[in-house]
Design a binder for these strands. Structure first.
Length: 597
RNA sequence: CGGGGAGUGGCUCAGCCUGGUAGAGCACCUGGUUCGGGACCAGGGGGUCGGAGGUUCAAAUCCUCUCUCCCCGACCA
């Protein structure tokens, strides 16, 4: 029997001053967590209880499709160099040295460790498929931890990895995870949505994120209320309204117009009396290839990435989506500095355009030439206006493919709210959301790089194909709180609440009340419910406030109606109160709560 | 890493500008009265004022350096 009077549940009347989001404030106020340092939290009794329940659900469901491992958090640096992620993850990796000076890292995820096991042990197609998972701490040296448990440097993650003989097998493993994730989040009582996700610089064809809408979230998701389209803003597309091209002027060749002092898209469009939609926005960027590990070791080359000029053209009123660009160029890009702009365009910023520059026809073959990426919204357009690469001048009559030759067309545009759904044309909405899970068709990257091989049916060596699948345990808790809170506290779904029911005798000095409450708690516990007895010698108001705060979905108030054989059952979420006969309490809760397994 | 803000008892904060005995509310301990929505009375404990250096007869307060935390941005399979 859990008695509040004997437990450490340090509730606070006020939230710490540095908490901003609801889940952070309430987790601290409810005595779930305490901060140790930026992005690192201790879980106290209630927090740990809830945490364990979440992990229990995750484990139960994962065990249906995979096998649980427990892997080290401490990895040798070499392992991460073998996969190429040591350089790729850069500062986000926690690094340390042991007493012998050997370099170690703290694991962010376990692709390398899992793959190293796979490559040593898996020999035959007969051993595939495999799904291996673990629930363990992960470490990321976040540049900016924030929002309590939402963005931390040490966190609990369920990460799973699948190994299949071929892509069709991966499809099956992927689908299993998709369905399992839905079951897990359903059981955790979350209102979530599944969105198409950016697979990022790691490659991979297909990826879905499991998202919970909340203003506290850092991700932006685009979705359609008219159909089931939903995607991360990083990869969302939309249907565009068609926009009329301008008629050619003069002989139809690029025509210089004087635009003194007009630099921005808006200024030029207004000055020339056209819409920004007939303008080209020219973005001058430099792609920084990640420093490769060989040249990195030579002192004189250390930290000097090779740069490549990337010029991006967008429709005048559109914004570049950096995640899409990164996916296209396979890395990150930064804006050019003034000298770099001068060197390429021979013109000051504000008058840049694609005309008169030799662009790479093939990004790889023409490595010496700058790359011109043109957003698909400009494909097929004609007589557009761009800078003339000459101070105070712009060019009219520019038609892509005729007056300049893009290296490639690509979808690079950031979707904005209200644009048309690519499936059904309805108006799209954009919401912020928290990512609670991510599934990912990894492909061959790790198995290939690290040299995993198995024999197929024909005795031929093939590289197994991988998928990886993550769930943020803390984020399930925070998302649940963000979803269900009011000014007094929060309520968790019974499946993940630290207790399902709190029994509150209004006055413990009245021995008959305390006894009645204790009996009720005992009986409910015997029936398999998770019960907390608030036997503290506090005034009822204090106990009610605490009960409202700490996330327990049901409260039983044991008061003077006990003499009539009745207590009050309060549903925290709605504040709905109903009188229930003590004799029928167990049946009542069996009707509204699943009993503990 | 760029920009902004904050470090004073367990929590929330005042005091700093204009240097001179460290404060309030909540929490905590003791006694008493209370007891269906964060009670009241009386008494009490608890603070290196983030740290170091400096100016001064005297520093929470002024100056320099530094550490930490929060927010915005950058970053974020």
């Amino acid at each position: 029997m859990h008695k509040w009077s004997e437990l450490f549940i340090p509730t606070l009347r006020e939230a710490p001053a540095d908490a901003e989001v609801a889940s952070h404030k309430f987790l601290v106020r409810a005595g779930y967590i305490r901060q140790l340092m930026a992005g690192v939290y201790s879980f106290l009794f209630l927090g740990n209880r809830s945490f364990n329940k979440i992990m229990g659900i995750v484990r139960e469901e994962m065990d249906k499709i995979g096998q649980e491992f427990f892997l080290p958090a401490l990895h040798p640096r070499e392992l991460w160099e073998a996969s190429g992620r040591f350089a790729l993850m850069g500062e986000n990796l926690f690094k340390l040295k042991d007493r012998k000076g050997a370099e170690l890292v703290l694991g962010m995820t376990e692709e390398e460790v899992m793959t190293s096991i796979a490559l040593k042990e898996l020999r035959s197609y007969k051993q595939l498929p495999q799904i291996w998972y673990q629930i363990a701490l992960k470490f990321r040296d976040e540049p900016r931890p924030k929002s309590g448990l939402l963005r931390v440097r040490q966190f609990m993650m369920k990460d799973a990895y699948s190994f299949d003989i071929d892509a069709a097998g991966l499809d099956v493993s992927y689908k299993k995870h998709y369905d399992t994730y839905c079951r897990i989040f359903d059981r955790c009582g979350l209102k979530y949505m599944v969105v198409e996700a950016d697979s990022g610089a790691m490659g991979g064809k297909e990826s879905h994120e499991f998202m919970v809408r909340t203003p506290a979230g850092e991700d932006h998701i685009v979705s359609c209320d008219g159909c089931n389209y939903a995607a991360n803003l990083e990869r969302a597309t939309s249907k565009l309204e068609t926009w009329g091209d301008l008629a050619p002027e003069g002989d139809g060749k690029p025509l210089e117009v004087h635009t003194p002092g007009q630099k921005t898209i808006e200024e030029v469009a207004r000055f020339l009396g056209v819409s920004p939609k007939n303008k080209i926005k020219t973005l001058a960027l430099m792609a920084e290839a990640p420093p490769d590990k060989k040249s990195d070791k030579k002192a004189d080359n250390a930290g000097k990435p090779r740069s490549r000029a990337i010029v991006v053209l967008m429709r005048g009123d559109h914004q570049l989506n950096e995640a899409k660009l990164n996916a296209v160029i396979g890395g990150a890009a930064r804006p050019m500095d003034e000298a770099e702009i001068k060197a390429l365009f021979k013109s000051p910023a504000g008058y840049l355009g694609p005309f008169g520059i030799e662009w790479a026809k093939d990004a790889k073959k023409d490595a010496a030439l700058p790359v011109l990426l043109v957003d698909k919204a400009l494909e097929g357009r004609s007589n557009l206006i761009a800078g003339a690469n000459k101070e105070d001048y712009h060019l009219k009559n520019l038609t892509p493919g005729k007056d300049f030759h893009p290296t490639a067309y690509a979808d690079l545009r950031a979707v904005t709210a209200g644009e048309g759904c690519p499936n059904c044309g309805n108006s799209l909405r954009i919401d912020t959301a928290v990512e609670i899970g991510h599934i990912f068709k990894l492909g061959y990257r790790y198995t290939k790089m690290m040299g995993a091989r198995v024999l197929d049916k024909n005795g031929k060596e093939v590289t197994p194909i991988m998928g990886c699948y993550g769930i943020g345990i803390e984020r399930i808790l925070t998302a649940a709180i963000e979803q269900s809170n009011d000014e007094n506290g929060f309520w968790l779904p019974p499946s993940i609440a630290p207790f399902q029911i709190v029994v509150t005798p209004v006055n413990v000095k009245d021995e008959s009340l305390l006894k009645a409450a204790t009996d009720i708690a005992t009986r409910l516990e015997a029936a398999g419910f998770d019960v907390l007895l608030d036997d503290r010698n506090e005034r009822p108001g204090v106990k009610f406030k605490d009960a409202d705060l700490v996330g327990i979905p049901f409260r039983i108030t044991v008061g003077n109606k006990v003499t009539e054989g009745t207590v009050e059952v309060v549903l925290r979420s709605t504040r709905e109160v109903r009188d229930v006969m003590i004799a029928t309490l167990v049946e009542y809760f069996q009707g509204v709560l699943p009993a503990k397994a």
